[in-house]
């Protein structure tokens, strides 16, 4: 017994040490850094208490139209609201498309395997490259089509807040739907065929099967899918940087980009770190809430 305890310890130790070195220790030193005025160079920053957190909510106020009422709020809150709007819309769209594609390619159509690969490919391209690709599509291709066909709507994409917003949504949906599709395919294929046979004998139509068999049994995958899309939407950085870089006038800036700019462009690493701590807490709170809600919907037959 004693021996197995020792080897247990020895086998767990490498990953535990790695986890401590790359996750736990940086998190702790990051939280500590948020209480200092580190400028990114000097190795002896001063301890400044909570003043970085105060700065986040008192400096850099912006006027925003939120739900048609004009507010003045700190930019960080404004950015948070923008990110939240983005997350809600893109979580719905990505999961809708992912699930629809999964249904499409599990119906035994010809060429299903090919279609699966095609839908998944966007996910293999890096976010930065995708961002620049879509920037070209939105600003050049859209513009030219708009010019030729005389459609005003297609011109000047990414030059306004709303086109920047929808540009980001389209980009992320295009990229992540394929990934979600794979998760939903796995879940749909795990449903025992006996259930469908029984439903067929009872004369159930497609929508009844969907409501009573597929949806409840795929709920587990929805938990995972919602979690991944929600946290990815909140943490989005590469695509935001490459597609709009926050423009126009910083109105399409999301949380991660705002933190990056605070730390590396304003060179206020302390305040950037304070924002990152708030960001960590917010994302953790939101995703844990989502997890506990959708866990309750899971069933097993």
């Amino acid at each position: 017994m004693k021996k197995s305890k020792l080897s247990f310890g020895l086998f767990v130790a490498p990953s535990l040490i790695a986890f401590f070195i790359v996750v736990i220790i940086p998190t702790i030193s990051g939280v500590l850094m948020s209480f200092t005025n580190w400028n990114g160079i000097d190795n002896n920053p001063e301890f400044v208490g909570l003043s970085n957190y105060v700065k986040v909510f008192t400096l850099d106020m912006v006027k925003t139209n939120f739900l048609t009422v004009e507010f003045e709020m700190p930019r960080f809150v404004n950015v948070f609201l923008f990110t939240a709007q983005f997350a809600v819309v893109s979580v719905l769209l990505i999961n809708f498309f992912g699930f629809s594609l999964a249904l499409l390619v599990t119906r035994g159509l010809k060429g299903s395997n090919l279609l699966r690969s095609i839908f998944f490919i966007p996910n293999l391209i890096g976010g930065l490259i995708l961002g620049f690709l879509w920037q070209f599509i939105f600003t050049k291709v859209f513009n030219n089509i708009g010019n030729v066909l005389g459609i005003e709507f297609l011109k000047g994409w990414l030059s306004t807040t709303s086109t920047g917003f929808w540009g980001l949504v389209i980009l992320l949906s295009w990229q992540m739907s394929g990934y979600m599709m794979i998760i939903y395919i796995a879940a749909i294929q795990n449903i025992p065929t006996s259930l469908f046979e029984a439903a067929d004998l009872d004369g159930a139509n497609f929508f009844q099967k969907m409501k009573n068999i597929i949806m409840p049994l795929v709920a587990q995958a929805f938990t995972v899918g919602l979690f991944l899309t929600l946290s990815n939407s909140f943490k989005l950085f590469d695509q935001n940087l490459a597609l709009t870089n926050g423009g126009p006038y910083l109105s399409t800036q999301m949380l991660a980009l705002n933190i990056y700019r605070t730390a590396f462009m304003q060179q206020d690493f302390g305040q950037g770190q304070a924002k990152a701590v708030l960001f960590l807490i917010a994302v953790a709170a939101i995703t844990l809430t989502q997890m506990s809600i959708s866990k309750k919907k899971e069933v097993e037959y």
């Binding site: 126009p248 006038y249 910083l250 700019r261 462009m265 060179q267």
Partner: peptide
């Protein structure tokens, strides 16, 4: 001042062009 030109004035000029 650090980042004033790009993130303050440059961004506000964008807002000026956008009519904001």
């Amino acid at each position: 001042p650090t980042d004033w030109g790009m993130s303050t004035l440059g961004v506000k000029i964008q807002a000026y062009y956008a009519g904001e």
